[in-house]
Design a protein around this nucleic acid. Structure first.
Lengths: 301, 301
DNA sequence: GTTTTCGATAGATATTGTTTATGGAGACAC
DNA sequence: GTGTCTCCATAAACAATATCTATCGAAAAC
């Protein structure tokens, strides 16, 4: 039994005439006759009654048809899926996220994806979480990475309905201090240590900054903020220059040794992926998203 | 693309080696190589990475496999369904006939058949002879039971050409009378006895009724018809209520003692089976028909 | 370095499918 | 009836395609 036999069978069933089906298939009538005979022989029963007016399905034929049609359409679906995959040779992919994601987490993934699909064009945009959500809603971004907070009932950030949010990476903010700091070289710090440390922080309005501020408030600390910056690398640079200490994502550290953990009450956050579920993702975006979600999130180390 | 290509593809994916798959399929390795190449060419992308250790599915391969496996199993399901059909494990059987057949003759047979093949679905329909013939012609019924008359040259009722008619049961109409009738308790009756008996008859237009009417005419009798009904059971009920006498099939009598035979010129009829010879009967219908025809027809007692 | 394991390739052969041409059976019109 | 039309089945020639045997090349294992 081969697929050609099945398509022939379906064609005859659909047309009701072998002759007409043969025209539809661009074959001659004897060819169909032979194919059908072969199929019937293999199945051990006739699928059609040959009437003077054409071909009429037998009970067996009806039963078989009911199985063959889904079979063929399932296969067609597979081919379509492959064609879409092949379409990855020409798609575009717009992804946005905060500084941590765009600078430290995405590059590796993007590189891998690029290696697999060299002709996909990437747009990576750094933006604050709310901006990312808006951009995803507006269709400017296919996929976004945003900061979310762990909650008892799982991840439940406030995002518009058509957005799907999926936890992706676990992050913790680490303290980096200048060499001249008395904390330098330690592995942990106490929150009250920060009263005497000038701080270089991510600019107000960002999600990370909100986390830091609220933690300070919770700990009853009044920090001395000497500078606000937007770029993580710039912040690290400032720390290196001795301007002050700073909080950065652990992903931003070359080595875990470079940062201090809070002895108590570390600032944890989650990075989550968001996308619209009510729009069909381009195959490139879909593939990239699948890659992000299927491979172990970078936070599980 | 043919099924063999797909099974080859699945086999290679399952085994992880082309060579091993070729052994499993009882083909040579070059054959598989060629098949796979063809498939990959048709799909426009490679399904496996050729590693020194064997064949490893590409992303496209995984996607395609996820569609091909259900495809093949769906087809296998279809073949199984057909095998079940042939094996009488499944199927449908539509049979129709007049009141006598459907109420008194078929139930026993249907029950027997059902016991042997529990998963066959039955459709039994009560209908007048002409309706049965039409339904069989239209394919609504697989098998029909109709009233036919014995003729000198065997059974030759007026039915369309592609119908085969086979005598099945001999029937005779028996007179049942109310207890108050002066005929009550007798075994025979004369036609002129009926002049003074009110009659409850099967409704006009039916084959039995035609038999009865023509017999009255032949005997020169003018019967007093007080009621016409469609249901044999209802007719018997009316007789029990004393409304009048009635003719019913001998098969409708619990005991032969319950009915009176005509002393002269009894009304005999035959019940015959009809089916289309130019259509393939489903195996269930075929088997049922064989059962009807092979076992002694109920009339030969 | 040698051997083993794996898939790809080439050419011969076998199988299978398709075509052209023809036949036969039922339906339909006259 | 008789001829004609519309079906599908069949036969034989031909074309396409799959498979086989034999061999090669590359990477890994010993």
């Amino acid at each position: 039994m081969e697929l050609s036999h099945l398509t022939t069978f379906v064609a005859i069933a659909r047309e009701g005439h072998m002759t007409r089906a043969s025209q539809a298939l661009h074959l001659t009538q004897p060819a169909l006759s032979a194919q059908l005979s072969k199929l019937e022989e293999e199945l051990g029963q006739s699928l059609f009654d040959r009437t003077p007016k054409g071909m009429e399905l037998t009970e067996a034929g009806r039963v078989f048809l009911a199985h063959v049609e889904p079979t063929l359409s399932r296969l067609a679906e597979g081919r379509r899926a492959l064609a879409e995959l092949a379409g990855l040779e020409r798609g575009t992919l717009a992804i946005g996220g905060g500084a941590t994601a765009t600078n430290y987490l995405l590059p590796h993934l993007v590189a891998r994806f690029h290696a697999a699909h060299p002709r996909i064009q990437f747009f990576v945009r750094e933006q604050a979480s709310q901006g990312v959500i808006d951009a995803v809603m507006d269709g400017e971004l296919d996929v976004g990475v945003v900061t979310t907070m762990p909650t008892r009932a799982g991840v439940r950030p406030s995002v518009p309905a058509p957005l799907e949010v999926r936890k992706w990476a676990e992050d913790e903010l680490m303290l980096v201090v200048p060499t001249k700091s008395r904390l330098y070289g330690k592995q942990k710090f106490q929150w009250r240590d920060l009263e005497s440390e000038p701080l270089v922080l991510f600019e107000a309005g960002s999600a990370v900054r909100a986390l830091i501020d609220s933690r300070f408030e919770a700990e009853g600390i009044k920090p001395e903020i000497v500078m606000e910056l937007r770029s993580i690398e710039a912040i690290k640079q400032m720390v290196a220059e001795g301007i002050g200490a700073a909080f950065v994502s652990r992903y931003a550290l070359a080595s875990p040794r470079d940062g201090l953990r809070a002895a108590k009450g570390p600032i944890r956050r989650q990075l989550s992926v968001v996308w619209r579920t009510d729009r069909t993702l381009g195959s490139a975006s879909r593939a990239f998203l699948d890659m992000m979600l299927s491979h172990d999130a970078p936070g599980h180390d």
